[in-house]
Amino acid sequence: MAYKFDFGAIVPHWELLVDGMILTTELTVIGAVVGVGLGIMGAWARASRAPVISQIVGVYVELIRNTPFLVQLFFIFFGLPALGVKLSEFQAAVLAMIVNLGAYSTEIIRAGILAIPQGQIEAAQSLAMNRVQIFRYVVLLPALKKIWPALSSQIVIVMLGSSVCSQIAAEELTFGANYIQAINFRAFEVYFVVTGLYLAMSILLRMGLKVLGNFLFERRRHV
């Protein structure tokens, strides 16, 4: 007997999906903002001449980039309580996303920093600017501009990766989907719809990041 599709079976549970999308969005926004901030600091440390700090950041980057996100999440949520650090599902999920994006964006932003011509930095040095001033006014914005497409992709990857947070019962979109199909056994319909929702969120996120990039890097006269 052929399977009879019944997308109507999802309708009574629509609020779960909406709540899930809201939580996914929250995780992504916080994770992206703090994670990219962490990446900027990490990239600066990696590009700086302080070898110890650079190496510590290097170890962090390699540790995160060479282990699965799920394991990182489990470690934070199930492992850290052994050290007395007990986090809620949401806190653990957002921390895992920050730590993960922080590592990837460190490497992406570092590439942007390395692409700044040395002459720009020498010119700034010759104008008696200190390292912090050079980074802030001369290096950061042109560096971010160079790597913005790559960084945008990484943020989308992290948003999609947040689905894994359902495994610690963070009630994001995939958690909602799992829950609904456990009640009505409509796995095809539920995951079909959720796939569409993720797709829509990804496209919106990419568009949003493009608009943000245009805003950040457009030629605006400051005086």
Binding site: P117, E122, A124, Q133, Y137, K145, F217, V223
Partner: peptide, 23 residues
């Protein structure tokens, strides 16, 4: 410098104003 090394994201005026302001 030989290669000018102006900051590409600032106007001519901003290039000249930057260091007096921040330094």
């Amino acid at each position: 410098f030989q290669q000018f090394n102006l900051f590409p994201h600032y106007t001519a005026l901003e290039n000249v104003m930057l260091s007096p302001q921040v330094v």
